[in-house]
Design a protein around this nucleic acid. Structure first.
Lengths: 344, 344
DNA sequence: GGCGAAATCCAAAGCGGTTTGGATGACCGT
DNA sequence: ACGGTCATCCAAACCGCTTTGGATTTCGCC
């Protein structure tokens, strides 16, 4: 039943002015060590904590970061998003910031950002899942709302702060690995290619093929939401073709699991009959570790990306004049049980 | 570059007092239709939106709901949590509320709640993943912070508002189905049983067995975080036993996928050699639909639960004196491809 | 002993809204 | 023509904090 105290009551109890108490608690120098101690003790005893609304009204900063997540996104990359959020959230709480999440229809996305800006709900936002044809950054610049991109906005790399993994490179390396193992017919089960990350992965794939004089076969390339059935169904169909693929390059563990299921259903064995390489976002509920991971993968922790993105953004907010920063993460290529030499 | 206006500027532009403008915008009656219209138009034109901090300082309500999520939880039920959040988030935005998420170490969970209360960051919170031995509700009562439980707190059902599915009943029915199909050795791959939901599911399982005079075999019962490898490894081990199970009852799609993988790896066929029933939270990235779903399952949409939980909580906040409400959702039992008569 | 600097502390003015308690007219019936 | 009611609108207080600009005291030093 702890009746919460406010600054005035606290200062009255101490026979001090609100000014002094505020300064004592916020570490300003013009207050004697002894009073500071007295204040701290009384505050502790009374369980005083400054009202966050009042404080941010007075200081002008909301001490919060916004994430607006349109339905299409969280339909699409659900768990990846959450893992990112978890990382970012840790950074925020470490710095005393709140994370506010807004779930909106795609149609209301713009107005969601406008509200964040005009109502001063947050000091900055994160852009999730940039598209090949992205536009949100323009709105945010216009709104004067600091932001960091998780991913990259094609054409705006220099003028925005972002954190991304080397998608192209990772998928090129994975493709190389498969080619080195003798695979000729490699399928690509990609994410939605209107998203920047997926477009880059495809590039990497095609470039690696081209480097060996191979042309990608459209029949072996798909692009969709990265669900489990997507992986399974696609693999089933492709494995039933004449000249089926001997290897799959998959954009997500979830779909890769689907592929593995299809392989099993056709009586084949993953890693010997059919090779699979997947990208692994290091989701906590889908561990792919152990001495020899189940899936050979390109791995990059999306949670780590979240932590770093948060840091980038908080830095931008602290120092609004600083130049845009980018973090370009390498993905590890990790050999697991799901790859082997091409059969025959 | 839209310089954001505040109430005073808006009122000056209109030659009206702030009072009148505020009242006009908030729908109070003591303002003429014509001025109200004039105000609305000017506000629209200038892109005015009340500063959320100032407003909640003045009104005393934060217009925000808090979700504190300790690391252990989001390690454990990652995607389920997100899906719930998505549902709740929709409810919140429909009512103009914000959702603020706090990621904390388990050790700081209590202080996270205290801060929400003392700094007035949110008007209410949701309790996620109640344990068999739960305590958070006591803290929240003491803090006078309205809350809704996603799940149930054993022993506090009557005094708290909650939304939960009928875990016991669902798992009893699923077990019955397997028994009807002639299965005698049924394995239970449960979630962590210090969580209320998992404890109930186990109860349902055991009761259904007992009703047919069967005793549960401890060697066929496990309890852990519901990851994919957990399902696979457990199934591999159990299938290698003497007198292996002919059916698996699994607490999560993710683990069930692991079980299916194990089944395939042992050269068996799901649905004929080995039956699987899983609980399906209807996660958007793990669709289990189609005319005949892959997995036979007990299904209950956790996203719907989120929506409803949000509504319950907002109602509580709007009417603090109302009695606690509970929503007890039925889970559908849906026959898919993963079950069949016991072999032999 | 006196004077300026340094150390402490405070009153009051914001921050941007909501809300209370009137003021001002317009309109009405008689 | 006049008191009374209603419809409108406003000035000012308040929410709880930060911060500016001084006031007061203490202290070192010549």
């Amino acid at each position: 039943m702890s009746k919460s105290v406010n600054l005035r009551e606290l200062s009255q109890r101490l026979n001090l002015s609100q000014t002094t108490v505020s300064r004592a608690l916020n570490g300003y120098p013009e207050v004697s060590p002894s009073t500071r101690k007295r204040v701290a003790e009384m505050a502790e005893k009374l369980g005083y904590a400054p009202n966050s609304r009042a404080r941010s009204l007075a200081t002008g900063c909301a001490m919060a970061i916004g994430h607006v997540i349109p339905r299409s996104i969280h339909e699409m990359m659900n768990p990846i998003f959450l893992e990112f959020i978890a990382g970012a959230g840790e950074t925020y709480s470490r710095h005393g910031y709140d994370m506010i999440i807004t779930v909106v229809d795609d149609a209301n996305e713009e107005s969601a950002y406008r509200e964040i800006a005009s109502r001063k709900k947050a000091d900055g936002v994160i852009i999730h899942g940039p598209a090949v044809n992205e536009h949100r950054h323009k709105l945010l610049k216009e709104l004067n709302l600091p932001f960091v991109v998780h991913g990259r906005i094609p054409g705006a790399e220099a003028e925005t702060s972002w954190i991304d993994m080397k998608n192209r490179r990772a998928f090129a390396r994975a493709t190389d690995l498969l080619l080195d193992l003798g695979h000729k017919r490699i399928a690509l089960l990609n994410g939605l290619e209107h998203m920047d990350f997926a477009a880059r992965r495809r590039q990497g794939f095609e470039e690696a093929l081209a480097a060996r004089g191979l042309a990608p076969d459209p029949a072996l390339m798909r692009s969709a939401d990265m669900t489990e059935p997507y992986g399974c169904d696609s693999a089933m169909e492709m494995l039933a073709m004449d000249g089926p693929p001997t290897a799959f390059l998959v954009s997500s563990m979830i779909s890769a699991i689907g592929v593995a299921r299809a392989v099993g259903q056709r009586g084949l064995r993953t890693g010997t009959d059919v090779s699979i390489i997947t990208h692994d976002d290091a989701l906590s509920f889908l561990p792919n570790s152990g001495e020899v991971p189940i899936f050979t993968c390109t791995r990059s922790s999306v949670r780590y990306a979240g932590e770093k993105a948060g840091e980038l953004l908080l830095n931008m907010i602290a120092d609004p004049l600083s130049a845009p920063t980018a973090l370009h993460l390498d993905a590890e290529l990790i050999i697991g049980q799901s790859t082997g030499p091409a059969p025959k």
